[in-house]
C-alpha cells in the first residue's frame, strides 16, 4: 500500500515537472544563432547536402566517435555476459522446419536489404540516412538470415575483424585531419568536390561507410550473442 502510494507520488511529481515545461513551451520562429550558422554555412564549409550529416560527422564528429565507442563497449559487454557455457556451445537443438514462405522470401530479400543498407550509408551526405541507419538495416538482413536458417553459425572472428578495422580506420581518418586539415575529424582531408555528387564532402562518405560497417557488424554481434543463449536448457 505504502509502495503504491510512493509510486503514485513519483509519477505525479514527474507529471508536474513535465507540465511545467509544457506550459512554458512555445515554438520559436527563428533558428538560434548556432543552428543558423550551421544551416547557412554548412554547405560551403563542409560540402554535405544533408546538414544533419554535416553536424553529426564534422561539426560534432567527436560526439559521434564517442557514440561509436559506446556501441562497441555494449557489444563487447553483451558478448562477455552471454558467452555460451562449454556444455551449451555445441548442443543440437531440434527446431521446427522453417516455413516455405520465410525461406523463399529470405533468399529474395536478404541481398536487397544489404544493398539498401549500403545505399543508405553511402549516400548519407546527400539524402536522409547515414552510417547508423545503414548499419541497422544491414543488421535486419542478418536477423532475417538467422530466422530463416537457425542452424547457421556466425563467424565471430570475421565480424570482429570488420568491426575493429573500420573502427581503427575511423580514428586514423580523424588523426589525419590534424595533419592535413584544420583539426581532429575535419573533413577537408580529401578535396570537397562538386556539391551534391556522391564523391563530395571530403571524407564524410568514407567515414559513413566505416561507421555503417562497424554498426552493422556490432548489431549482428549482439544479435548473434542473444541467439546463442538459446542453446541453453
Amino acid at each position: 500500500m505504502i509502495k503504491n502510494g510512493l509510486i503514485f507520488l513519483v509519477l505525479v511529481g514527474f507529471t508536474v515537472i513535465l507540465s511545467g515545461l509544457l506550459i512554458n513551451f512555445h515554438g520559436s520562429e527563428q533558428l538560434n544563432p548556432l543552428a543558423g550558422h550551421y544551416v547557412q554555412n554548412g554547405a560551403s564549409e563542409v560540402g554535405a547536402a544533408n546538414l544533419v550529416t554535416a553536424v553529426v560527422v564534422t561539426y560534432r564528429g567527436f560526439d559521434t566517435l564517442g557514440e561509436v565507442t559506446i556501441l562497441f563497449i555494449t557489444a563487447a559487454i553483451v558478448g562477455f555476459f552471454l558467452k555460451a557455457r562449454k556444455e551449451d556451445e555445441n548442443r543440437e537443438r531440434s527446431l521446427r522446419k522453417t516455413s516455405e514462405i520465410l525461406s523463399t522470401a529470405s533468399t529474395l530479400l536478404v541481398p536487397t536489404i544489404f544493398m539498401l543498407g549500403v545505399y543508405i550509408f553511402m549516400n548519407g551526405h546527400l539524402t536522409p540516412g547515414g552510417g547508423f541507419q545503414g548499419g541497422a538495416v544491414i543488421a535486419t538482413g542478418m536477423v532475417m538470415i538467422i530466422m530463416s536458417r537457425p542452424e547457421v553459425k556466425f563467424d565471430h572472428g570475421i565480424i570482429a575483424w570488420i568491426e575493429s578495422t573500420s573502427g581503427v580506420g575511423y580514428v586514423i581518418i580523424g588523426v589525419l585531419g590534424i595533419f592535413l586539415a584544420a583539426g581532429f575529424l575535419d573533413n577537408h582531408v580529401l578535396p570537397i568536390g562538386k556539391f551534391g555528387t556522391i564523391l563530395s564532402a571530403g571524407v564524410i562518405p568514407l567515414i559513413y561507410v566505416l561507421i555503417g560497417l562497424k554498426v552493422g557488424s556490432e548489431l549482428t554481434n549482439i544479435i548473434g550473442s542473444l541467439k546463442e543463449t538459446q542453446n541453453e536448457l
Binding site: 548556432l34 543552428a35 550551421y38 544551416v39 554548412g42 546538414l51 544533419v52 554535416a54 553536424v55 553529426v56 560534432r60 560526439d63 559521434t64 557514440e67 559506446i70 556501441l71 563497449i73 555494449t74 557489444a75 559487454i77 553483451v78 555476459f81 552471454l82 547515414g130 547508423f132 541497422a136 554498426v215 548489431l219 549482439i222 550473442s225 542473444l226
Partner: peptide, 23 residues
C-alpha cells in the same frame, strides 16, 4: 539540425542500453 543530430546519437545509445539490459 542540431536536435536531430542529438536524437540520432540518443537512439543509438538507447539501442545499446536496451541490448545491455536484455543481456
Amino acid at each position: 539540425p542540431i536536435p536531430q543530430a542529438l536524437v540520432l546519437t540518443s537512439i543509438v545509445i538507447g539501442v545499446g542500453v536496451t541490448a545491455l539490459m536484455l543481456a
